[in-house]
Amino acid sequence: MPAAIEVRDLHKRYGEVQAVAGIDLVVKAGEVFALLGPNGAGKSTTVEILEGHRPRSSGDVTVLGYDPETGGRRFRERIGIVLQEQAIENQLTVTEALRVYGSMYPHPRRPAELIELVGLGEKATSRIRTLSGGQRRRLELALGLVGDPDLLFLDEPTTGFDPSARRQAWTIVESLRSLGKTILLTTHYMDEAQNLADRVAVIAHGEIVAEGAPDTLGGRADASSLISFRVPSGPIHLPAGIEVSPGPDGVIQVRTPDPTRVLHRLTSWALDRGISLDGLTVTRPSLEDVYLELTGGEE
């Protein structure tokens, strides 16, 4: 299958500001790809170039076989765009808006079907003016899907959602994935990227600083784990060969690439002496830790 999105050496400058400084990106057809990055890192600019909203300064961009700058009507018939905070004509009803926007595409999806998909059934004939913030976002998602696109751009799809609305949005994205749609989403929620994306790229300062599956991003798979626990006060001699460091609040921490072996030694040592290891936890660096490290902790 050919790639849905191919980007080589993309640059975008605004006056003296280099917003995008040499990005390479390949998104395969049928993939859910997440762009992570702090505000101002260049992720919105990149996505807007891919959508055809913005010309690039240099580089090669192919989206669904088209150059977004020149693809025009045929290109836009095959993509769907869900931007954040974008108004829809307030005077129309939900069904009317879906019908009007659908009429611009050769193969529109039926309004009733989309309303069902995003769960706006009880609002189908209400004016858009009367929708709550969450309902409006769901309508925006429906509008992104109205042309039955091959590629869907989702710009921070769940920002401002409550937890249950987020779950619902994720379920919709999952169902789109199963239909074989390619999805490019931007987000700054780590759990969203973790849950939805097949692959993730982290953008900082206009460049991609890491790329991979959420589980392996930034060497997560190989990174050392952190074992922490408490022991009763008093002099304690831990088994030899385990390097400990004091954590906050008297917590003892052990950093190791081999948690299985270390844990075994620790627990048998503790059982032998009748000591309890209070609050024993093993953690791997979260996607968030990796992300903060990669982007220099800015947000």
């Binding site: 959508e51 009507r73 018939e77 765009i81 905070e85 108004a87 829809i88 611009m104 042309g147």
Partner: peptide, 14 residues
């Protein structure tokens, strides 16, 4: 201002 024109620009409508 509301972004409706931008939304239109992202559709195939000439």
């Amino acid at each position: 201002d509301e972004g409706i024109l931008k939304r239109i620009r992202g559709t195939p409508l000439p």
